[in-house]
Design a protein around this nucleic acid. Structure first.
Length: 428
DNA sequence: TCTGGGGTCCTAGGACCC
DNA sequence: TCTGGGGTCCTAGGACCC
């Protein structure tokens, strides 16, 4: 099984820029008194930990930890707990990405806090100071600490950026993996589970075959990886050998589906409440479609009970409906979502989560109107444009469809709002 | 008592066709 | 009488990511 390999050190390298502890860092931009304290950001309904400061990590609080279990790691009141504010995080992410784009040209935005970009064929001795300057610029201009890793492939760049983040005092926030000896050394120290694209299941399977580190994995023959596993893992294998072949679908590409879903603040039993939540979700979804300039061919709804409550009956179901014409109109999306809900709502069941999704998305510019359809779509478009303009000017939801009388029954809990800053939002 | 939300890609297997 | 095999499309589910 052991084979010699030669990483192909390509001329063009891939870099990954990664914001450190991103959500917590955003909250610290708003409230500098949070610096130096253990801080965690909680998911919707304040359910579990989705971002941790270094101080919180040092206390042993794991990622994904349910909020009510924080007390098993430390005194809960010694940790600052904040409800997530995704609008703020998106705003700050935009600013960071704009700076990276300005400095490095074409970037692939991979997630809210990460982006890849290509580096020219320059000696690392010149690239490194340039990257260090970028790290400093983002810290000074936006207040967000970032790390940059660069290497012959994205998967190796990812490993490099982790090192840059972990040993920040030594690395200046920048770490590169270019020379073969350095790559070998680091792969020997990298547990297989830490490799991008290798999750829990694949890790345990590989471990059963004696693969403990990234270096062990790299020694496997490509044919074996392909035949025992799949093409995705084979690609990761090649990436670790220094071949640039990962496919990243940047969020800026036209997406394939959109979902808006929420876990309710409490279990819900009556149709009206689930209906109002679905109407609200569908309105959000239609607005997002217009923002991203896509239209849906199909709209679906799902509902599910509370799998943690063994004392209640569990029910889940989903239904989707093809639209008469691909659309982004709030009216049409809501109408079909409500119809789909009618097909799956079952009286006597309890509901804890629901959502609306749009799929088979098309760019708005590609839509061919159905001439035999009774709906006047150009009128719909003008109406939606006016609604969006009013909501933007006066703040959503200034104009919305009638229901959603009382959202308190189903709205997620947000007990720990962080500090808000209108000033920052205006600056953007 | 309290356990998120939003995505992508790949594969196996069934239906269908010639 | 002989009752195949290969291709495509679709879908559900698995695995992974942040």
């Amino acid at each position: 099984m052991a084979m010699r390999y030669r990483p192909q050190v390509r001329k063009q390298m891939k870099a990954l820029i990664d914001c450190n502890n991103f959500f917590v860092s955003c909250e610290r931009v708003m409230d500098p008194s949070l610096h130096g304290k253990p801080v965690v950001v909680l998911s919707g309904n304040d359910g579990c930990v989705i971002s941790r400061s270094n101080e919180a990590k040092a206390l042993g609080i794991p990622m994904g930890c349910p909020a009510f279990q924080i007390g098993s790691y430390t005194r809960p009141d010694s940790v600052v707990q904040l409800s997530a504010n995704h609008r703020l995080y998106c705003n700050i992410s935009d600013r960071v990405m704009r700076i990276v784009g300005m400095e490095e040209g074409n970037i692939e935005i991979y997630s809210v806090d990460e982006a890849f970009f290509s580096l020219p064929d320059d000696p690392v001795e010149t690239i490194h100071p340039r990257m260090a300057a970028l790290v400093r610029k983002i810290q000074q201009w936006v207040g967000i600490p970032v790390s940059i890793g660069f290497a012959p492939s994205r998967t190796l760049a990812k490993i490099a950026s982790h090192i840059a983040k972990k040993d920040r005092r030594i690395t200046d926030g920048v770490y590169w993996l270019v020379r073969r000896e350095a790559i070998d050394t680091i792969l020997r120290r990298t547990p297989i589970s830490d490799v991008w694209g290798i999750g829990r299941r694949t890790t345990s399977s590989l471990q059963e075959h004696g693969v403990a580190t990234a270096a062990d994995f790299v020694k496997m023959s490509p044919g074996l990886v392909r035949s025992f596993y799949n093409v995705t893992l084979e690609r990761t294998h090649r990436e670790l050998r220094g071949e640039d072949c990962a496919t990243v679908s940047p969020v800026t590409d036209s997406r394939k589906s959109l979902t808006h879903s929420r876990t309710f603040g409490q279990v819900v039993t009556d149709f009206e409440t689930v209906h109002d939540a679905i109407v609200s979700f569908a309105q959000h979804l239609a607005k997002r479609m217009r923002d991203e300039q896509v239209v849906a061919t199909e709209v679906g709804v799902f509902v599910r009970g509370d799998s943690h409550r063994t004392d209640l009956p569990f029910y889940q179901n989903a239904c989707s409906i093809v639209l008469p014409t691909p659309s982004d109109s709030t009216h049409l999306v809501v109408e079909h979502a409500v119809r789909a809900l009618g097909c799956i709502y079952k009286p006597g069941m309890v509901y804890r989560k629901a959502g609306v999704w749009a799929c088979s998305l098309l760019p708005t510019s590609d839509v061919q109107l159905n001439l035999f359809d009774p709906i006047d779509y150009s009128k719909q478009r003008r109406l939606m444009a006016s609604v969006d303009a009013i909501n933007k000017h006066y703040g959503a939801p200034a104009v919305q469809l009638a229901p959603t009388a009382d959202t308190r029954t189903w709205s997620p809990h947000q007990a720990h709002p962080g500090r808000q800053s209108k000033t920052l939002l205006f600056m953007m």
